[in-house]
Amino acid sequence: MTIMVVFTVYFLIPIWWLLVAATKERGDLTTTNALWFSDLNLVENLAATTGYGGGVLPRWLLNSVLYAGGGALLGTLLAGMCGYALAKYRFPGRELVFNVVLGGVLVPATALALPLFLLFSQVNATNTFWSVFLPSIVSPFGVYLTRIFAASAVPEELLEAARLDGSGEVRTFFTVAVRLMFPALVTVFLFQFVAIWNNFFLPLIMLRDERLFPVTLGLYTWNTQVNQVPELRLYVLTGALLSIVPLIVVFLLLQRFWRGGLGTGALK
């Protein structure tokens, strides 16, 4: 119990610090207690932060939601279909495909960023929305997880029954398999969402147009300009606080689906 409390505090202190810092005036940042409030200034800070640079921060947040939300949704769908196919259909080369995908799990995303940049350069597509979005919908780990899950959670007998009732393969996937695989799909979605949200290196290399930046890259850029525009120090903190809100919302909304085993008891 004590250990749990200690670790909870350990993990929550940085967030607490961020929350407190975002409510302070700039002058109070270094001069007052870092873990307790001084004059409350949160509303003014929020207004100034979202208004700086022609209101570019809300745009960054929206971009991040599009990259992460859209990318995770599409990525989950692709990974789910791929994993399901690998688990439920027998075809030559199945294990080879799976092993290659599995190999993909081992390649860090950072190592792929530069080759991707050169590839996108050849089709003149760097500095576009797609240059960040398309690489984001690929999730080898998702394929792995959904295959393992589908193998155990989607019974052959159920698929057989669906086929006998005249359901096509695609319809069976969307009406039967997806529901049974839901806990795994939610997991893949959350992992992918967080991975894209935090992916900093790919946008850093690909993007030069400020209006396309995700919030991570935008805040980093501001942070490197602090010496020229001192107000930015506070804006970076307030922006960081804003940027974790969507993550918290997504987790709170989706965690209930984690209570897995939707298919338990469906058969017997």
């Binding site: 290659v100 190999g103 792929l112 050169l118 590839l119 797609w130 690929v138």
Partner: peptide, 22 residues
């Protein structure tokens, strides 16, 4: 055409580890 080209590239990039650009 451009979007299609990009889509293809993105898919092959999963396993491509080195740049072909010379």
């Amino acid at each position: 055409t451009r979007a299609a080209g990009v889509a293809l590239l993105a898919l092959t990039a999963v396993t491509a580890c080195s740049s072909g650009s010379g």
